[in-house]
Design a protein around this nucleic acid. Structure first.
Lengths: 119, 119
DNA sequence: AAGCGTTATGTTTGTGAAAATATAACCTTC
DNA sequence: GAAGGTTATATTTTCACAAACATAACGCTT
């Protein structure tokens, strides 16, 4: 592409990847970050706030993941001390770790291809 | 992920990649197919029809690519024999070839990562 | 000069996803 | 038993983007 573009350094390969199930999306970068925020904050509502996302959307995403997986990724509690909360199950932590690996390798792919664009 | 999902074989990594410029998207899978259809049909309107896309949208995409590239990827002619038409410039053919290479390597990446998901 | 198929371009309408809004239920704490 | 903060869920509203619609211009052909 180098001789196709006026300023090749300003162009790069970007992209997104996600794990797709038979019916719905299972995991993507947004859901990954949501899981990480739930882990960090201990609640869906605080995770949503931290991401500038509505609570409903966050809950829907959690629901989608929990119902698709063999075991829930997020365990929730309604009521109780400080109103309740949410935390990652071991399945949840494993999903986070696994998909972070995918993301890391994908970023490497994009960087390598961006390098190629300029040659 | 293998022990996270009920039927790991039904889940795969999917994704999209595109060349992003400072202001607009430059090339993606849709634009690539559009260029290929222009090459095959000799006109923007026939290419759009072949893709089930409105002519205006196709023209806008061509315009976006032509104005971002150093030289136009698509040469057009208004009026004349059979009303006019469009064809790929050499820059256009090179862009198609280059991005097809990116796409091929990306599909290989997705396949490899999908294989990984099941292990 | 009238017609045809195309490029070129502006304006209006639809539509689907996200956000906003609204309630209810839950359980600990005070 | 009232309050507080959370999960859980339905309904309504917004908004960005694509589709649809509408016109004009262009230059061969007949």
């Amino acid at each position: 592409m180098k001789d196709l573009l006026p300023a090749p350094a300003d162009y790069r390969l970007e992209g997104r990847v996600w794990v797709q199930g038979p019916h719905d999306r299972f995991l993507g970068i947004g859901r990954l970050e949501l899981l990480a925020q739930i882990q960090a904050t201990g609640s869906i509502s605080r995770a949503a706030a931290a991401m500038g996302m509505s609570y409903k959307r966050a809950w829907d995403l959690v629901h989608s993941m929990n119902t698709q997986a063999l075991a829930p990724l997020v365990a929730t509690q309604t009521g109780g001390k400080s109103g309740g909360g949410a935390l990652l199950t071991s399945a949840g932590s494993q999903a986070v770790a696994d998909f972070q690996g995918v993301q890391t390798r994908f970023q490497a792919f994009l960087a390598e291809e961006t390098r190629r664009l300029a040659e």
